[in-house]
Design a protein around this nucleic acid. Structure first.
Lengths: 338, 338
DNA sequence: ACTTTTTCCGAAATCGGTTTAGTGAGAGCG
DNA sequence: CGCTCTCACTAAACCGATTTCGGAAAAAGT
């Protein structure tokens, strides 16, 4: 069925070795022979089989992508989907394919690491995973080249969105609009969340505002309903905040809904901000004040780090790339009423 | 580094063949031996290498996924992302991994089909692709098992969302609310679009309404700006429609925006419907009337068709699965003013 | 003319498995 | 006891490439 190197060698009247060498640009092949080989290969539609090549060279030109199985937020989550999309394009540009890594391939209970070895991936990108699980840590700290998104492992490359700056700028923006009672609703425990909380405290401190425990609310990412609940809770405080920062744009939608149900106008009665800069937030009225993460740059950067590691294992160093964010002011954040 | 079959055979004092057979449940291996092999394999952490196995058996347990490179709507598009997510889960359940197929791996200008052969995928799922391109057609009609989403190729399995019913039900819903002037804004040419237009005409016919050419507007999928433009155009007609069906929820957002800018209230002055049933549509006020596609079922069904084809090539027949949709009424569609 | 070097190519081992064909030991049988 | 049959296992070919090592022929040097 498929055309193999043998067909080329037969058609050229050359040995298999010679054909292989011609394809891999060995120096001990004459220009004419090389040309002949390439020509006939094109004629009969030959291209080396990746499987056979991988077996011998131990280089698959295939990268693993860890995209949390469990968790409801898989491919559906727009932030991760965008990062992955950019990562994918950049990898393809360099000749690498992408295969999903998971830990329940059929019957066998392979770990992530085992799955990577099983498929001989050259490297792996942890896009969206439970970074606190031992299995993920095992993979990240293995000898397989690895890059992570938004969570740093010791001595491994990582691309981070500047979450600290993101929240800090949001708070500054709020303060510049006269807000002093600023609440922060955050998502699940993660390094992203930690950085954002730090940014929150830092900006409050900078503005000389004392943080209040009841203004820091534990909620979920990407959950309008959790956002609704959190907003409700905040607004029912004896001394409610005048500005609420939500974990993301979807959650902010829930908050807007809650405000509506409480007959609070946004931004006249209360200001709300999201995070992510989804298109939808810009279609709302009021337009959502939010922070745009540079997902494209994150994905591309991750690909470059990983490929560098793979292709220059000796000289490549692990890097932590901090990708800047951009504050997007919208009408959902208003000046505070006197 | 990696532990191979040799290590197991050495540790057991058995030949390589025996170990392999024990793993593949050959009948000419005694129960004790089989047990011994599995036990030691577990001890030293052995699992057969997929690459080596593939080379010999020509079965990779790897499926290709075609997810349009070009087109801006890649992984980002929520409908496709959801289908892919379900497809992925189901495949993993059956022991298959997923690799993205594209046509610009590095320098080489491989076609989709060549890429599939290059990676030895057992089958391929065309999720989101330009079905009218010759390259895609070449792949779909090749000897590689194939399943498509929302576009049927002769004698190939396919999973379709019932788009005809979807639009038909929307129109019926509009009619039942007293609308007679119903416009349909549709996305790019595709089999999905064709079916929807047919559903539109059919429902109009059913209600005894004469279709009007100026009520059928050519726009784009997933484009709020195109939606905005289309809505604007419709509302400026001498005799504007009272109800507008948009290509999808995102486009509907654009239409809502346009209505707002024209100081038209929804649904009092004009009714608007979306398509897809995104979460966001349900968070809007007014809640968007829309059609929910069963993306999960589509993905799972596609996986089952494909795997059936792969594992029972002789008996499997090509099937076209029609997945039902669900109308989701919302406040964006109101009773027509007298 | 003879040695040395360079150029170009091929034989064969190898990667880690699967599978076919065969083999030796013991059981069953007359 | 000798024969055949099973049973349980192994040797070896093979999948499609890459790569090391070596060798023949041509070119260069003396």
């Amino acid at each position: 069925m498929a055309v193999t190197i043998k067909d080329v060698s037969a058609k050229c009247g050359l040995s298999i070795s010679t054909v292989s060498k011609a394809f891999n640009n060995y120096s001990d092949i004459s220009a004419e022979t090389r040309e002949l080989v390439h020509r006939t290969a094109r004629e009969i539609g030959y291209y080396p089989n990746a499987i056979a090549r991988t077996l011998k060279t131990n280089r698959s030109y295939n990268l693993g992508v860890l995209y949390s199985d469990d968790g409801q937020n898989g491919l559906t989550h727009s932030f991760f989907a965008q990062v992955l999309d950019a990562f994918k394009s950049e990898c393809e540009k360099h000749g690498y394919d992408l295969t999903f890594i998971n830990h329940n391939v059929g019957w066998t209970g392979m770990t992530y690491l085992e799955h990577c070895r099983y498929r001989n991936v050259d490297g792996v990108c942890l896009v969206c995973a439970d970074f606190y699980s031992t299995e993920v840590a095992e993979l990240a700290t293995s000898d397989i080249p690895c890059v992570t998104i938004d969570h740093a492992f010791n001595n491994r490359s990582c691309v981070m969105s500047d979450n600290l700056q993101g929240v800090q700028q949001l708070v500054r923006h709020a303060v510049s609009n006269g807000h002093r009672k600023i609440a922060f609703v955050h998502g699940q425990r993660s390094s992203v969340t930690e950085n954002r909380i730090t940014g929150y405290y830092r900006a409050l401190n900078e503005a000389g505002i004392d943080p209040r425990a009841d203004y820091l609310v534990d909620a979920l990412y990407d959950s309008p309903t959790a956002g609704y609940t959190a907003m409700n809770q905040l607004m029912k405080l004896a001394d409610p905040p005048t500005c609420v920062l939500m974990p993301d744009d979807h959650s902010a939608l829930g908050a807007l809904e809650a405000a509506g149900d409480l007959h609070l106008r946004v931004p006249e009665d209360v200001s709300i901000a999201g995070y992510d800069g989804n298109r939808l937030g810009q279609m709302l009225h009021p337009r959502l004040t939010t922070v745009k993460q540079d997902t494209k740059r994150m994905g591309v950067q991750a690909a470059l780090y990983l490929i560098e590691r793979i292709e220059n294992p000796r000289t490549a160093v692990s890097e932590v790339g901090m990708v800047p964010i951009k504050l997007i002011p919208g009408e959902s954040m208003g000046k505070v009423k006197k």
